[in-house]
Design a protein around this nucleic acid. Structure first.
Lengths: 344, 344
DNA sequence: TTGTAGGCGTTATCAT
DNA sequence: ATGATAACGCCTACAA
């Protein structure tokens, strides 16, 4: 009798157990105000009848939707090119599931779509909280949400671009430092970075860290921007390799571009890692599938999703969440990085 | 004045425009029963006040949530290894957005989690319809949903495994035929398939088509199953290549495994495509990033998502949807397939 | 054309 | 401990 055809309400349960609807409500919500006997009976009957609370009614009465909102920028290319978002959703969703929360997803297709979706959620109350990802430089969403303190928000971003919103801070800057230092230690003195879109805040953060560290260490460096696709990645690589004194190591902002860079090098007769070292950001399956395996800066994105869910639930509970640091990246040394070529 | 702090209701709008709440409701919903003058005034004031209908209240009154449910099997590995789901969500979400629908996502973590999430949605009415993907052989979800005709469902699967549910049929079987014929025409007479998990219905469909066509054409063939990861893909490839008379062409069920297969071949001194042809399923960025570019069976997954959204909305409107065919795959010939080696 | 009132299913307050 | 009863915000007959 698990599931009934016609929806059974709290009144049906009340009638069947010979008590009032409020008694049923108390019993089902584990609140005091009802004897253990009746509670047991009500629970039993509710189960037999296959009763489940109607979501809309519950949401209306409690002004709680049990939903977390996530806006995705609609660019199938960007979304498909990286496993980041899917991993984040996995971690997020799995943790939310434990607390009877769901994930409400909307695609922001046009220009100000993201902003208007957020406004919509604030006004309609269709979510209890929001997760803000892929923040852009000067993102108006941040300002809007700063004003609307009634809507709990967690930003996943570098703390420097998320205003005073509670933030799960990326470890990007540190990771860039770690990667560059690693190449330095291998003897590289001329490196390049093939970055993602310039307007993304995390591109900017990585860009800055990259030039800062390289400068600090007295390295020559170059940074080219792409749209994350292998085509633009290849192009950037070709440009970098077109000079006789080309960089001896390249760090790519994602794995697809690293893979395409590896291809370009191979096609041009440049041996990796003997003549050129290649590093990928965001270690994915692709990195271990490629030959040679790609050295990568990896991190636990699923774990980040889990953490984000925990923090969001805290925010919903009214707890304060400041600026929480994400787990650091981990350098996974594989087959595409090595000492700088001697004769250069 | 776009967005207000305290939530504004239709009563506020009614008071501000000097009419009753029902007049406001009619005006805002574009229904007759109110003069054009008052309608205009109400709309203006509602906009000024930043009124938006409360989602829960609307859902309760209309028993319509404006939400489509999607259950994802929680296996971050499987989810992350392919861009399929993210692309599907992109297309789905973008189309839903046009009709003011959102996507409600939940992760099925345990064994019967998927089933109980579906039961939950049936009972709580938290979604207006569901999309069923990644159906397994003998999937109990299909049976459950067949019984609950009150919940509109669209299955994305081969029609043979989705019972009598409305289905957006995959073109998998045809695509397998096309791929095998292509290899046959190149002269290959001994081929292999490195497939995904055996319990997935679409693996089974492809397996069957594969053996059928190969038999028809009088080809030798082999089929090994994996869990979609590059590790198991490599392993399968090694096993296939370990025999002196190994297949001259391998079709992989996803791109990561095809890439890892390419790596294994390269590492063993087998030249692709001269000594071995490699084909990938599900053309992704990885295929054009790899060197040489991977020949692949590609399809418009985003388009499938769009189509699915359209069909779901029809179902919600009470229209009948039978068995709609997905757009066919397209063979994208690139650098990893070629004529069968002469001296074998 | 307009306003009044009841219903959607729960939760929560108030008497009893 | 229990049972009416009023929110929650919107929609929609039904009267006026």
């Amino acid at each position: 009798m698990a599931v009934q055809k016609s929806k059974v309400t709290i009144f049906d349960v009340a009638k069947a157990s010979g008590v009032s609807s409020s008694a049923v409500s108390y019993a089902l919500n584990g609140k005091s105000g009802v004897s253990e006997d009746t509670r047991a009976k009500v629970l039993k009957i509710a189960h037999e009848l296959g009763w489940k609370p109607n979501g809309a009614a519950q949401a209306l009465a409690k002004s709680k939707t049990q939903r977390i909102g996530l806006v995705l920028g609609y660019d199938p290319k960007l979304l498909a090119v990286e496993s980041y978002m899917m991993e984040l959703i996995s971690g997020l969703g799995a943790e939310l599931e434990k607390h009877d929360y769901s994930l409400l997803v909307r695609m922001a297709v046009g220009e100000h779509a993201k902003l208007s979706i957020i406004k919509d959620w604030i006004a309609t109350g269709n979510v209890d909280a929001m997760l803000l990802v892929n923040i852009e430089l000067g993102d108006p969403c941040v300002t809007l949400l700063e004003e609307h303190t009634e809507m709990p928000v967690l930003a996943i971003a570098d703390a420097s671009v998320s205003g005073n919103l509670p933030t799960l801070s990326s470890a990007d800057a540190d990771a860039v430092r770690q990667a560059v230092q690693y190449l330095y230690d291998l003897g590289h003195r001329h490196i390049a970075r093939v970055a993602g879109p310039e307007m993304l805040a995390h591109s900017y953060i990585r860009d800055s860290a990259f030039s800062d560290v390289a400068t600090e260490l007295g390295m020559r460096y170059r940074c080219l921007h792409t749209d994350y696709t292998p085509e633009t990645g290849s192009e950037a690589t070709k440009r970098l390799l077109s000079f006789p004194e080309h960089p001896t190591a390249i760090i790519y902002d994602n794995d697809v571009m690293a893979l395409s860079g590896l291809g370009v090098a191979t096609a041009e007769g440049i041996t990796v890692p003997d003549d050129l070292s290649i590093m990928s950001w965001d270690d994915s399956f692709m990195c271990t599938a490629a030959y040679p395996n790609l050295t990568a800066m990896g991190r636990d994105v699923v774990g980040t999703g889990t953490k984000a869910a925990e923090l969001l639930l805290k925010l919903i509970d009214g707890e304060r969440v400041g600026n929480v640091m994400e787990e650091p990246y981990e350098l996974r040394q594989r087959g595409t990085t090595g000492p700088v070529p001697a004769e250069r």
